[in-house]
Nucleic acid binder design. Structure first.
Lengths: 223, 223, 223, 223
DNA sequence: TATGAATGAGCTTTCATTCAT
DNA sequence: GATGAATGAAAGCTCATTCAT
């Protein structure tokens, strides 16, 4: 795999199969020593920075190793390959993502609309963690099944949270619809967040948030 | 350009673009003959298929040429390079995209909600054109400025259409807010469309459309 | 032959052999019509310009044809290949070269030293004809046997002229030495001419000519 | 750089050179180990041979690697590119060139003419080092600015030596003329050396040396 | 005769990955 | 465990030349 193929996964060339996994378990060191852990983290940090700055395909394994101050051999003793490394970084990144949004709690002292607005602002904030890296990762959500899976898991958790937040307002709707209701809400927030954070659109960002708030408010009110 | 770098554009090397100016008009054949046109189209078709199936980086120029049944030399006499070819295909693809959605007209004989539902269905349909290719292209929207520009142009046109559709219902809102209102609507539809068309989520798709319809209906009603 | 190989001729890859010549006689048109002649000249002119500006390897056949306003097919019906074309241009160029220097005649009304100085100045002037092209050609004198042969023929003629000029002053030397005497003179003039015309050396050019004059004057006086 | 363009430098495209700055120190291996050094030398040797036999443009990187018994990857880990390699070889070659001629010392026990003859013979000998390679390099002196620069540096050193040799005989001439005097001498020797060593002219070589000696003798005597 | 579309061998260069030390 | 020299498949692209029209 010369370049991290941006692809759907339909019928691409080489899917390695299980042998790699078996081999991996034998080859890849699971660091227990202090120094090992540090090295691992150093590599991941270097990689995240480079991925963010130069893209995944634009960053070579050798470059990552050099930046991390280890040899390429060491790199490959800690990570099966570049993609595995990327997935690991992404996994960690997304965990923080969820951890953060998990804290979403309805504030009973303010109005529903204000609550929604605050939730949106909070949701937007997560993108500030490693925005460039997140954007790079997003690129692969559409192309790499494994990346998509990671994102989906996070999304599922986020949707669950949204469900629990929305449920109290759900009067007319059937409980089994909550899943789709939450998905629609999640989707709207996510896309506007991308627009605001990544896709430097010429829109007025505050106004966008206000309209999104309004739309969700009307929607939640109608449930 | 070894691989079509999927990257943010932060501080990557430097894509010239001047080559296009220097020799394109002289080197690149502009086909006027029947057979030439056919060949060009054949290459574009082959490329679109391969891009859709294997991704842009996963598809080599030689592969495209082979698939199209022409030599690599012929390939390069019709297209400056792989990226140019991709952009051309995308441009054409997105044109159909707009052409199609342009026909959106409010049907006075049915209710607002039914109208919205129909608009959504219609908007979703465009993704059936070359879904895999569209998805591949989407990947690059986040990483390539030129790709983003093409997408943005289309989006702007679509937002204009949405504006004109929504305007009659806009009573309390100021006219200058229409831009953001439409963006929020567009965003929601687009993201749910992706979920339905690309990201094989386990959701009930009909229910998603129904909820999206409901949300937009409530929103438009409140404008 | 992708690029005009700069080589000694020792044991390079492909020496085509005679078959090409036989084929050439059949394929290459010898233009007798007015229009044909014009086209030939047009191609040669375009080629000389491009060779001078961009080098031989830097100029493609297609470019020459385009510049000359003919099709590449026509190009190859007039010239066997790029190298043949180059040799033809060089031949013509060198002919003017000789024609010009042929007029060298000793002026009895001025001193020997002045005569020598004038001869040197005249010899230098020939390089002003198509200096850039000449320089390009010179490059190949060292690498291409055929080019070398053309240059050698011209040199032989020039040496003959020098011989006839020098002979009257040759008192102590044996007549059969005249060949080497003239070669040494020719050599000195040529090399200083290159230095003055092509190799923008930081030397004072008038002073160089003066010293060369002095050296040759002393030499001729001692013959 | 597809082919090492043999060209004047008038208004050619544009060789960056910055790549050397950007990543060379990081990408290019500086060999310290015994084995590394050997490999580097092996590549250089293979390259010099091939350049001499087939020219620079006639020799591909892959060919050099193959001949040196290393992979193409190894080749590119030791040398930025073909041109850099060539320049390195040339630099080394020219250093020997100067080192050798540096030893030129006037022998007080023999006559001036004998001294000159010996100097000439010695100067001629340097060309025996790697004559074919030297000739190839010479080709590029006229076309490549960097090559020219290397040659010019050597020439300047040689002219300095000639100056110091000639100075004691310089009675009538002004000291500031020494530069041009030496250049004229250097030029004559160099050009005759080329004629004798490279351009298999039909002249009697010993006689040529004798005449050159005579000319320089007369010249030096008149200074 | 003239055309110019078409060919494809061949070039330079990159980089993920291995493995002897 | 760590190293980094070595590998070589594979990519993008050029251009001299041919040949059907």
């Amino acid at each position: 795999m010369q370049s991290y193929e941006a692809t759907t996964g339909a019928d691409h060339e080489g899917s390695e199969g299980l042998s790699l996994i078996r081999g991996a378990l034998m080859r890849i060191r699971i660091p227990r020593q202090q120094r090992s852990r540090e090295r691992r983290l150093k590599i991941m940090e270097a990689a995240r920075d480079l991925f963010a700055r130069k893209g995944i395909n634009g960053t070579s394994s050798n470059e990552i190793a050099r930046q991390a101050g280890v040899s390429i051999g060491t790199f490959y003793s800690y990570f099966e390959n570049k993609k595995t490394l990327f997935l690991e970084i992404l996994r960690e990144h997304l965990e923080l993502f969820v951890t953060d949004i998990y804290s979403l709690q309805t504030d009973a002292t303010i109005s529903l609309k204000d609550n929604i607005r605050e939730h949106i602002r909070k949701a937007f904030k997560v993108f500030d963690l490693h925005p460039s890296f997140h954007k790079e990762a997003l690129v692969l959500k559409f192309s790499d099944p494994e990346v998509k899976k990671l994102f989906d898991e996070v999304e599922q958790e986020q949707i669950l949270i949204i469900s629990s937040l929305v449920e109290p307002y759900c009067h007319k709707r059937k409980p089994e619809d909550l899943q789709e209701v939450s998905k629609v809400i999640h989707s709207s927030v996510e896309n506007i967040a991308h627009a605001v954070k990544f896709l430097d659109s010429p829109m007025n960002k505050e106004r966008l948030i206000e309209e999104l708030t309004e739309m969700l408010y009307q929607y939640v009110n109608s449930l």
